[in-house]
Structures are given as C-alpha cells and as structure tokens.
Computed example of a mutant assay.
Amino acid sequence: MRHRVFISITGQENNFGDFFIRRASLGWTESANCRSVFAAHHDDGWVEAAGVRADDVVTRGGALHRLAWLLSSVVSRRRPVLVTDPGEVWLVRSRFFQHLFQLLIAAAIVLRRGHIIIPPHAVAQQRAAGVWPPTLWLHRALAKLADVCLWREAHSLEMIGEGDLSPDIAFSEPLRPGSEVRRLCLVSLRGDRELPSEEWLKGLSAAVTEAGLDIVVFAQVDRDANLAAAVAESLAATYNSGSFWNPDSEADLRALSDQAAVVISDRLHVLALGALSGAVPLEVVADPEAKVRAHFSAIGIHDMSFDSRGRTSEEIARWIAGRLDRRSSVEDAVANAHRALSEWRGLVERLIGR
C-alpha cells in the first residue's frame, strides 16, 4: 500500500523564521507522490514559496478545519504518514485538548500501520509559556508513538524523555560559501525589547569599527521593524527596511548574510541563516533567554550568548571582538549539522517509501 503524507505547515504569517523551517520540513517529504498539506491561513504565494506542489491537496482554515484534516488521515485509503510542525510546541493548559486529539489521531494512524514523524522541535520556554504537566504527558505519549521524534535542544529532550537530539531543521538548508571578504555586521533584535542601552550601542559600535565592518540593521518579522529603525538611528547605521518576513525577499536577506562577518541577534533563525553563509552568530542582549544558546549548543557552537545588562561598553566590545575570528569553526559546526539532518531526512524518506 502506498503512503499518503499529511503534513502541517502552520506558522506566523509574517515571520521568515517560521516560513524557513516549514519549507525545510516540507522538503523532507518531497519524495512522496501523495501529500495532504494543512496550511492554516497562508496565502498562495507563501504556500508556493514553501514548496507545495500543484498536485498536493491543500487545506486551509482554523482549528476546526485542522481537526477535520487530521480526521481525514485516519480514513485515508492509503496508509497515512503524519508529519507535525517543526519549531516550538506549547505545552500549556489551554492546548490540552488540541494535544489530546492529536494523540488519538496518532494512535489510530499507528494502528493502521502508518507512521508519525515529528521534525526537530522544542518545548516553548519563553517566560510567558509555562508547562502544564497533563499536556506534557500527552506530548510525551505522542513522542513515544512516533517513528521519528527529534528535539532541537537538550533541555526539551530531557523534559520529555523520548526521542533524539538533532540540529534545528533550518540547518538542512543548503550551505552557502558567501563572500570571501566580509564587510558587514548584521543586527536584528526582537521588537518587544527596549532600545538597547548606551553602553550596548557604544560597545557594539566600537567592536565593529575596530574590525572594519559596516552595520546593517533589519527586522526579521514585522513587529520588529520599529525597534530596528530606532537601533539603526542610534548607531548611525544603515537600516534595511525590506520586508524580510516575506519569502519573496529571501534572496535579499541571503545576499546580506553572504557579506556578513557577524550577525548579532536574539532571533534564532536570523542567526541560523547567517551561520549557513559562514557568518559568526552572536546573541548580545540584556537578559537573554535560554533558547538561542541552547539551540546553538546542540550543534557545537558554544559561548555565543552574552548578557549585556549592567556591562560597560568596553566589556561588550571586548566580548564581541574576541569571537569575530570563529568563522572556520562555525562553518565546520554547520556542515556537521547539515550532514546529521541529511541522515534523518534519509530515514524519513525510507519510511515514506516503504
């Protein structure tokens, strides 16, 4: 019996990072000759750019439409393969029934000798997230049922206790040699932060000026744009106002990354995109959350996150300057991550092809 792949590519509409990893996840199933894709409310341009084919069956809508789409996997004439969303999973109380329904569907798929694939993901650990134990238990049960369950950082794997550690699926994207001579420092910060301190601004400026780099500030998502413009003004730097949360602008963002010696951000996939082009990824912010450093630690890039709160401009500049020569080690770590993900993709393709 041939398989039918049911794959979810939901995510924030105006977030390039969400688009980036969902395109990669969809790419893992491109060998399937029969796919049903749940695309939430994404428009045709987003869906096409993500790699959805003309012969794919696309379902759009909200929570009820997603439930109906999941149910259709159970009654599919072909043996179903369910591929969940990559990225963060929220194990909060309000999502208990969503996780319960998904677990029941997964159990029915397993009974039909189908497969469950959970691409690289992580438990949401932002300060606003929290974890409700019953919801956690449901996700642990789903992970136990899965043929492939991948965690993109170690703490989530330890919390659930089922599955395997892997790099973030963004690193399955093709590696880029980038420019031999790098002249840029890219800066992109979350829009819910305050404007960085004077010490931060002076320290960053001093480090990159000493290295002979020009600063370009941009926003990965639309809600980051106001802060990005303010940071650029404070640094007297270039503000690239391109809509980088739009997949049509990806070539422009990659061109910037190819010219960057360093990327400074608290956005995981801004840093991942830069690292794919050989730029050194650094997080330099006040009170950084564990997310970024945990994900880069999983691929062997350590000591790349710095808490700038209360630090002098000299301390900030010294910390940044001491890490600008890491290009070779970053390229090696990213290449290893890419190879590891290629092996996991091969396993998924074999499951689909059975």
Rank of each mutant, 00 (worst) to 15 (best):
R354F: 03
A321R: 15
V187H: 02
V83M: 08
A108C: 07
A24K: 03
D56Q: 01
D332V: 12
G87K: 07
A333T: 12
G17N: 00
A298F: 11
R78K: 15
A261S: 12
V285K: 01
I316M: 10
V52P: 01
R293D: 11
C34W: 06
Q98E: 14
I264Q: 03
R60I: 05
T10Q: 09
S277G: 10
V52E: 00
S73W: 10
S172H: 13
I316R: 03
G45C: 08
K144Y: 07
V348F: 06
D248N: 11
L347M: 12
G203N: 04
H65N: 13
G278M: 01
N15I: 12
A129K: 05
W137E: 10
L324K: 04
S179C: 13
D192C: 01
H269L: 01
V52I: 02
A170T: 14
V74T: 11
L271I: 06
V187R: 05
A206G: 02
L189N: 00
S243R: 04
L142N: 02
G346M: 13
M1N: 12
G114M: 09
V123A: 08
A146Q: 04
S25T: 13
R339S: 14
R267K: 05
V47N: 04
A340D: 03
A294Q: 08
A251C: 09
F16K: 07
I9K: 01
G242R: 13
A32P: 01
R22H: 09
G114Y: 01
A340F: 02
S329C: 04
E331S: 14
A143K: 07
A337V: 05
R78T: 15
R339Y: 08
W245E: 07
V284T: 10
H121R: 12
W46A: 05
I116T: 00
V262M: 10
H99A: 11
G114R: 12
H65F: 03
D56A: 01
A279H: 06
R311H: 14
R35W: 00
A107Y: 03
S94D: 15
A141E: 14
S197P: 00
L111W: 10
R93S: 15
S249T: 14
R183G: 11
G278F: 00
R293C: 12
S25P: 06
V47I: 12
R77I: 11
L204H: 00
G178D: 02
L70T: 11
F38Y: 13
H121M: 13
V47Y: 02
D252H: 03
S308N: 13
R309F: 15
G114P: 06
L282I: 11
G87C: 08
Q12E: 09
L150M: 13
K202T: 05
A290E: 12
D44E: 08
A40Y: 08
A54H: 10
Q125Y: 03
V280T: 05
G191C: 08
R309A: 15
E250A: 15
C149I: 07
A232F: 02
V284G: 04
N336C: 09
A211K: 09
T10F: 07
I316F: 05
R323C: 03
L71D: 06
I117F: 04
